[in-house]
Design a protein around this nucleic acid. Sequence first.
DNA 1: CGCTACATCACGAATCGTCGCCATTTGTTC
DNA 2: GAACAAATGGCGACGATTCGTGATGTAGCG
Lengths: 340, 340
Amino acid sequence: MATIRDVAQLAGVSTATVSHVVNGTKKLSPETTERVLRAISQVSYTPNTLAKSLRLGQTHTIGVLVEDIRGLPVAAIVSGISETLSRSGYKTIFHDLHLLEKLYNQYEQIGTYRQRINDGAALLKSSNVDGIIYVAMHDRHLDYLLNPMDTPLVYAYSHGTEKDTCVTYSNRDSAADMIRYLLNRGHERIAVIAGHPHSYPTAQRLLGIQTAMQQAGLPLSSEYIRYGDWEYESGREQTRAILRLDPLPTAIFAMNDLMAAGCMATLQEQGLRIPGDMAVVGFDNREIASYLQPPLTTIALPTPEIGVRAAALIMDMIGSPAVPPRREIIHCSIVERASV
Amino acid sequence: MATIRDVAQLAGVSTATVSHVVNGTKKLSPETTERVLRAISQVSYTPNTLAKSLRLGQTHTIGVLVEDIRGLPVAAIVSGISETLSRSGYKTIFHDLHLLEKLYNQYEQIGTYRQRINDGAALLKSSNVDGIIYVAMHDRHLDYLLNPMDTPLVYAYSHGTEKDTCVTYSNRDSAADMIRYLLNRGHERIAVIAGHPHSYPTAQRLLGIQTAMQQAGLPLSSEYIRYGDWEYESGREQTRAILRLDPLPTAIFAMNDLMAAGCMATLQEQGLRIPGDMAVVGFDNREIASYLQPPLTTIALPTPEIGVRAAALIMDMIGSPAVPPRREIIHCSIVERASV
DNA sequence: CGCTACATCACGAATCGTCGCCATTTGTTC
DNA sequence: GAACAAATGGCGACGATTCGTGATGTAGCG
C-alpha cells in the first residue's frame, strides 16, 4: 500500500503538502496541486484510516449495540441507521447482544443481561467509536447501560431515562388513531387484547385507547379489555373469552399481529366471518399480517425512520457534544388491508 | 485516557516492559509484573486499539458485507457471525448494501448494483478489515464482487465462484430429503411449485427431487412441476393449475413458504382439507410457517450455522492466508408441523 | 535604485500510542 | 575473570496531521 511519503517523494514535495492537497486544508498553487494529484493516482494512494484516526482522535465510526438482530424491528432499524451513517461517510461497528435467546428469557439471568450489555458497550468504546446507538425492543434492560458514558449515546426504539437522547414511536397516539379508525367505520363496541398487563407499551396504548373512546363519548367497560402475553396462543385464549361477552363487540383490537393472528384463527373456527361478523386489527405490521386471510389491517412501526433519525442525532451530538438531550417520538401509520 | 507511558512512569519501568506484561510476550520477574499490573489498574489503562493496529497492521476486525439486513435469513446469518466473531475477540464492521429495495428490483439497474457492491467492499477495505464476509441470498449479484481481493473473503449463503471459499446450505439434498419424507408417508403423486425456472436454487432442488423419485422407482411427470416466482400470489396461481390435473396429486411441495401459504389458501378456498385431502410442504421455515392453519411442515435453513462457519473460516484464513479455498455445504433439517 | 514590508507557498519536525529489535545491565556459575 | 543467561531499557517505525517557520517573490516608497 502506498503511503503519503511515497506520494510526496514522487511529486517532489513534502508530506505536509500532500496532506493539504488531500484534505483541502490550505490553498496551494495550482501546479503543485496538479502534480500531487497526479502522483496520488499514479501510486493509487489511499490515506490510511488508522493513522489518521490515531492522530485526530476521531474514527468516524459509530457503534451500534443491538439487543438481537433477529428481532424484526431491530433489523429494520439497523437498516435505516446503516444507510444514513454510510451516506455521511461514517462506518458502523456492530455488536449483537443476543438477548432474545431462549435460554436467557427462561432463566431471567439478570446479572448476565447486565454484564452482556456493559461488556458490549465496553467493547465498542475500546474500538474508539465516536458514538453509540443502542437498539432494543424491550425496555426492561434499559437500566443496565449504567455507567455514565463519555461517548455520545442515543437510544433507538427503547427510551432510556429522561436525561437520555432517544428516538422511538408513539404508543399512545397510534393506539388512539386505530380506535378512531374503527369508530369512523361504525364500530362502537371494541374489545382489546392487550399485552402483558404491566408492560410499558400496554399501559401507553391503553391510555390512548381510553382517550379516544372518551373523546367519542363512548364507554370502555373493563370486561372488554383482556390481557395476553404477546404470543399467538394468548390471542386464541383471549378471543374465546371475548366471545362469551354479551353483547358481543363488533371489533377486536389486538396489541400485536401475533395475537391478532390467533384471534382470527379462533374466530374463524367458530364460524365467524372477518370482517363481516367481526373486524380485527393488530399492531406492528409484521410479515405475517399480509399473509393472513383476510390480510390484516394493522399499525406499521416507523422502523426505518427511527434508524434514520437515531443516526442523524448521533452525528449531531458528535459535532457539538454539549447539546441537551432530545427525545423524538415518531408517528406510526395505519396499514389498511381487508380485516375491517 | 491513560497511555502506556503513564503506566511505565508510575511503575518505574520502560514502556517496553509494560507492553510485555500486557501481551505476555516475554518472561518478566514476578515483582516487575506485579508492579506494572498495579500501575495499570491504578490509572485504569486500556491499550489504544488504534495505535496497536497501526503498529501491527492488524485490526482484529472483520467486515460483514450484507445484501440487505431486512432479509430474514441474512439477519440470522449475521447473528451467527457476530456471535462467533466476538467470542474470539474480533470486531464486526457492518455494511448494508440495501439491495432489496423495490426501486432497484424494479429497474434492475445492474450498473448500480455492481457499484454498490464494489463501493461497499472498498469502504470495508479502507477500514483496514482483516477479512470480509459477503452475505447474500441471491446469487445474481455474485459476479459483481470482481476485483481480486487482497483481503481474505468468504461467501456466506451465496456461492461465489469455484475458486472462492463459501459456506452455504444444500439445495439438492434437502429437497430430496423432503421428497423421501413424503414418500415415507405414502404420498406417491407429488406436485411441485418451483421458483423462478432459471434460478440456481430451483434447478438444484429439482435435481434433488428427481433423484429421490427415481430412487423410489416413481415417475415424475413434467405436468406435476409448475414454476412460480417465489411470491405468495404465484403459489395461488400454480395451485389452481395443479387442481386441474388428473389424477390429482396427494401432496404439494412448494419451494418456499410464501408460495406454500398461497397454495394452502387456495386449497382451502376450494374446500380441500389440509392435510386430509392434500398435504402441503414448504421450504425456508419463515416465521409465517408456524402461524398458518395448519402449521406448515417445511425445511429449516441452517442460518445460524452458516454464520458460525463463515466466521470460523475467515478467522482461519487470516491465520494462514495460503489455505486453498474451501466450500462447506450445511444440511437443512425438516421441521415437522401439521400440514402432512 | 535599494530597501523594507508583506503575501504566498512549501517544508521540517513533533505528535498520536504501541510494539519489537537490539543493546545493555545485572547476576550466576565454573 | 570469563562466559553466559535473564531481565529490562532505548529507540525507531507504523502513517498522517499541523504548527511554526523559512524561502521566495512582489509591491511600495523614499
